[in-house]
């Protein structure tokens, strides 16, 4: 059982504004009440990473796209997962790329899941719902159990 799942924030990294908007709306549809922060490129995530390193509060879940401007999602993933302080943040790659090498590298760098976004919006909502419950409510995050 989680201590206080409601407080866990979700970081959504998505360059496409409409997609980001649709994702947010999906959260709304599933009555997801946790705070959701949106970053539009990889570089911004890396800036945030520096703050996390110095003690800023960590997000409960990162939803990460691959095709990002400036710094790719894979690079962001690698950096977060190879940083001691942030390596335990669950990261779900949420993308439309079916590129085999993307999938391979994502798991290699430590992604917790790799999800291909369905075109059908209802299906997408269902997927987001499952994901969030899994990572923010039903699952006990390792550092919280300590």
């Amino acid at each position: 059982m989680t201590s206080d799942p409601q407080k866990l924030s979700v970081l959504l990294v998505e360059d496409n504004a409409m997609e980001a908007d649709l994702t947010l709306r999906a959260f709304t549809r599933i009555n997801f009440i946790n705070p959701v922060e949106i970053l539009r490129d990889g570089a911004a995530v890396l800036e945030l990473l520096e703050q996390w390193k110095t003690g800023a509060s960590l997000p409960g879940l990162i939803l990460l796209d691959i095709n990002l401007p400036k710094v790719t999602g894979l690079e962001v993933l690698r950096k977060i997962k190879s940083t001691t302080q942030t390596s335990n943040i669950p990261i779900v790659v949420l993308t439309s790329s079916t590129n085999e090498s993307d999938i391979k590298f994502a798991y290699e760098y430590g992604a917790n899941s790799y999800i291909i976004k369905p075109v059908d919006y209802d299906k997408f909502v269902e997927l987001v719902s499952t994901l969030c419950y899994y990572w923010t409510a039903l699952n006990v995050r390792p550092e919280l159990s300590r």
């Binding site: 590129n99 075109v119 919006y121 997408f124």
Partner: peptide
């Protein structure tokens, strides 16, 4: 596949 599908998702999403 990636770039063609993104707008599709938007169309589908907003229509829904």
């Amino acid at each position: 596949s990636h770039d063609l599908k993104a707008p599709l998702r938007s169309i589908s999403g907003y229509s829904t």
